[in-house]
Design a protein around this nucleic acid. Structure first.
Lengths: 114, 114
DNA sequence: TTGCGTTATATAAATTTTAATATATCGCTT
DNA sequence: AAGCGATATATTAAAATTTATATAACGCAA
């Protein structure tokens, strides 16, 4: 254990061909789309522009093996967006890595001696 | 083992009071100052401006328990900069965390199934 | 068939970051 | 004491990023 005023923090992400394809923020975006059924609402909740959210989703959809979000325009409510089963799998795997990272950081934080 | 086209990557850093104080880039900067004895040369090698390098060093010097770099102006060669013993300790501890992170990422990369 | 709310996309404006430039200080060297 | 090369610091310019705005497409509902 350790009462140092310093602590270790970190981030992980998934890459393909050296390019970041999924991190922290994108996962939260997917989760909010899953809850709200709307790209717009998810973007508002996260205080990002619709464009920014759309770009992130488009990037994921074109780089993962299958799309993570399917969207429709027009119709009841004006349109909607749905996280695919594949998208749910992506979220779930990222979460399990996050849990492990958290443990890693806690362990090592206590090793800091500066 | 895993031949997925996806891989896990990540970064770690040391914080104090929620503020990032040491990461990847700063460690490299310290190492290059240690080698060259010059902030300017270290900055040139890393293709950053002198100001940027100086700001980073100043931030570390004022946030760590002790300074990590001592610099002198004037004199032989125009001036110089030296990494302190404390600075060397900082580098060394960060490296040991980096090694562990690398192992963590390799282990978990092979778990990706997308 | 008009209106509504959302997706989709482009363009322009604003902001923030980053980089470049300039100037002063310092102490050894010649 | 004048010059050199590096540190130190402020100011300006440029670049990159972010945000805002505008427009069109879409399909259901009233």
């Amino acid at each position: 254990m350790n009462d140092s005023k310093f602590n270790l923090d970190g981030r992980i992400w998934i890459e393909t061909a050296g390019e970041k394809i999924l991190g922290h923020g994108r996962v939260e975006l997917l989760e909010r789309i899953k809850e709200s059924g709307s790209i717009r609402q998810a973007a508002l909740q996260m205080k990002m522009s619709y464009k920014q959210a759309w770009d992130l989703i488009n990037h994921m959809n074109t780089h993962f093996t299958s799309p993570v979000v399917i969207s429709h325009r027009g119709g009841k409510g004006g349109g909607n967006a749905v996280v695919t089963d594949y998208g749910l799998k992506v979220i779930s795997q990222f979460h399990s890595f996050q849990v492990k990272l958290k443990a890693f950081l806690a362990e090592n934080s206590s090793e800091i001696n500066l």
